[in-house]
Computed example of a mutant assay.
Amino acid sequence: MKKQLLIFSIFLLASFNSFAHYMWIETNSIGKVGQSQEVKVYFGEYTYGVTEKVKGDAFHKVQNFTLWVIDAQGNKSALKTSPKENFYVAKFSPKNKGTYTVVLDNNKIDVIDYTKYDFGIFKTHYHSVAKVQVGKKSNATATVNANGITVKDVSETKKTIKLQVLFKNKALAKNEVKVFVADLWTKTLKTDENGYVSFDMPWDTKYIVEITNKEEVPGTYNQKDYEFIWHCVTYTIL
């Protein structure tokens, strides 16, 4: 009996952890004019090195995402993705110098019922951002998520990252921000009254910023009622 309870507990924990997955973008932060820039889209739990396989059931549920690149002049171009084993890949070639913003958005995810975990019935809205700098002159990244949460990179130096978190185009004050680095290293910060947050990057490695916001607005999606919307944005720095 104890063994059965243990197995059941492990199953519930695994199911709940699958909810804690996120979508994120990986691309080289430095680009060159006329040179192909590769962009990868992942779904999983980067804290533990988990990346779901594209053909698996978990990734299938979040496959209806859109991927765009926005140049320094604000021109927005859709990127076509191709499936690989554990990520989708897209490519673009910068035409001019400046700051390019790669943006993923996914607001087409079925309602999830997690009342058994005391989390409720909710709809998920994923968003992800990455910056590609072409040339030395750096500008703030573009923000294009008017219906959810996003992050704008307004950094002035390479070693210190300064971000502004926005929700429906308004500064999100006093909101938790998590910074993840390899080997399970995590730092939790909070935005100030104007939605800004800063942190140093002492190591030459990948940093992933994760920010969530619970919008207490009920609704219906695909004929299923939900109690709130769980918004999540990730920002990757390579």
Rank of each mutant, 00 (worst) to 15 (best):
Q4Y: 11
F8A: 15
S15Y: 10
F16G: 05
N17K: 08
F19I: 09
A20R: 12
A20Q: 13
E26D: 13
Y42C: 06
Y46H: 10
T51K: 14
T51E: 11
V54Y: 02
K55E: 15
A58T: 11
A58S: 14
V62F: 02
F65E: 00
I70Y: 08
D71E: 10
D71F: 08
A72N: 13
Q73N: 15
Q73G: 07
A78Y: 07
A78W: 04
S82K: 15
S82Q: 15
D105I: 12
D105C: 08
N107S: 13
I112R: 12
T115Q: 15
I121L: 05
Y126A: 01
H127V: 09
K131L: 06
Q133P: 06
K136S: 13
A140Q: 08
N145Y: 07
I149Y: 01
T150R: 01
V154T: 09
S155N: 06
V165K: 00
K170W: 00
N175Q: 14
V181P: 00
D183I: 05
T186V: 15
L189Y: 11
G195P: 01
V197E: 00
D200A: 13
W203A: 13
D204W: 07
I208E: 04
N213Q: 08
E216S: 11
E216L: 12
N222R: 14
Y226N: 02
F228C: 08
W230N: 11
W230T: 03
W230A: 10
C232K: 09
